[in-house]
Amino acid sequence: MEPLTEHRPVNGPVVYGLLRLVRVSAARQEALRASLVEYCRSHELQLSGVFTDRHSTSEPESAAFTGLLDVLVLPDVYGVVAPTLSHLGPKAMAAARTRHIERTGARLLLARRTHTAPRPTGLCRVPSHHRHPGSARVLDAES
């Protein structure tokens, strides 16, 4: 007799982390990385890697972000997790990067919302493994 599904190890949806760590202490870097790991653990997501921007730039393209976009088109990748929207860069850059992520069909999940960030509309409460280009939604820890 086969064990019930609840008794089998099941991998959660695959996500990749994104951190923007410009002039940040080693302790802060570790705390941010740990926050992504904990968020993924508590939401049953499989954190497969973390891409880190370490240089300040005004352009949306960077080695870390380009690498992130490359893995988002792989099969079975659910989305991107970041501590806050600011990890995508300043407002204009974050908006451009969000559009790039949306074009891959991946979800953008935020571990923490800032008080100034508007609450996203149309939150998806149950992860869907079926992605459609242009259907990305920003999800937060309250969803």
Score class of each variant (00 low, 15 high):
residue 2 E to N: 00
residue 3 P to G: 00
residue 4 L to C: 02
residue 5 T to N: 05
residue 6 E to Y: 02
residue 6 E to C: 07
residue 6 E to H: 02
residue 6 E to F: 04
residue 7 H to W: 13
residue 8 R to G: 00
residue 9 P to V: 09
residue 9 P to F: 03
residue 11 N to H: 05
residue 11 N to F: 04
residue 11 N to Y: 03
residue 12 G to I: 05
residue 12 G to N: 06
residue 13 P to E: 04
residue 15 V to M: 02
residue 17 G to L: 01
residue 20 R to M: 14
residue 27 A to W: 05
residue 27 A to G: 03
residue 28 R to M: 13
residue 28 R to E: 15
residue 28 R to K: 14
residue 29 Q to P: 10
residue 29 Q to W: 07
residue 30 E to K: 14
residue 32 L to D: 15
residue 33 R to G: 05
residue 33 R to L: 09
residue 34 A to P: 10
residue 34 A to T: 10
residue 39 Y to W: 11
residue 39 Y to T: 15
residue 40 C to R: 03
residue 41 R to I: 10
residue 41 R to P: 09
residue 41 R to H: 12
residue 43 H to C: 05
residue 43 H to E: 13
residue 45 L to Y: 01
residue 45 L to F: 06
residue 47 L to F: 01
residue 48 S to Y: 01
residue 48 S to G: 00
residue 49 G to N: 08
residue 50 V to A: 02
residue 51 F to V: 14
residue 51 F to K: 06
residue 52 T to R: 10
residue 52 T to I: 15
residue 53 D to R: 04
residue 53 D to P: 14
residue 55 H to T: 13
residue 55 H to P: 07
residue 56 S to M: 14
residue 58 S to A: 15
residue 59 E to R: 12
residue 59 E to S: 12
residue 59 E to K: 12
residue 61 E to Q: 12
residue 62 S to L: 01
residue 64 A to W: 11
residue 64 A to K: 03
residue 65 F to I: 14
residue 68 L to Y: 12
residue 71 V to H: 06
residue 77 V to M: 05
residue 78 Y to N: 00
residue 79 G to D: 03
residue 80 V to H: 07
residue 81 V to P: 03
residue 82 A to N: 06
residue 84 T to L: 12
residue 86 S to M: 06
residue 87 H to P: 13
residue 88 L to S: 09
residue 89 G to A: 09
residue 90 P to M: 02
residue 92 A to M: 04
residue 92 A to V: 12
residue 92 A to H: 10
residue 93 M to W: 01
residue 97 R to T: 07
residue 97 R to C: 06
residue 98 T to S: 07
residue 99 R to D: 06
residue 100 H to I: 05
residue 103 R to A: 13
residue 104 T to G: 06
residue 105 G to H: 08
residue 107 R to F: 00
residue 107 R to T: 07
residue 108 L to V: 13
residue 108 L to H: 09
residue 109 L to G: 01
residue 110 L to S: 11
residue 111 A to M: 11
residue 111 A to L: 12
residue 111 A to Y: 09
residue 111 A to S: 14
residue 113 R to L: 15
residue 115 H to M: 09
residue 115 H to V: 08
residue 115 H to P: 08
residue 117 A to K: 04
residue 119 R to H: 15
residue 120 P to H: 14
residue 120 P to D: 14
residue 123 L to Y: 04
residue 124 C to H: 00
residue 131 R to M: 11
residue 132 H to M: 11
residue 132 H to K: 10
residue 135 S to V: 05
residue 136 A to G: 12
residue 137 R to E: 08
residue 137 R to Y: 10
residue 138 V to Q: 03
residue 140 D to C: 02
residue 140 D to T: 15
residue 140 D to R: 08
residue 142 E to Q: 09
residue 143 S to I: 11
residue 143 S to A: 05
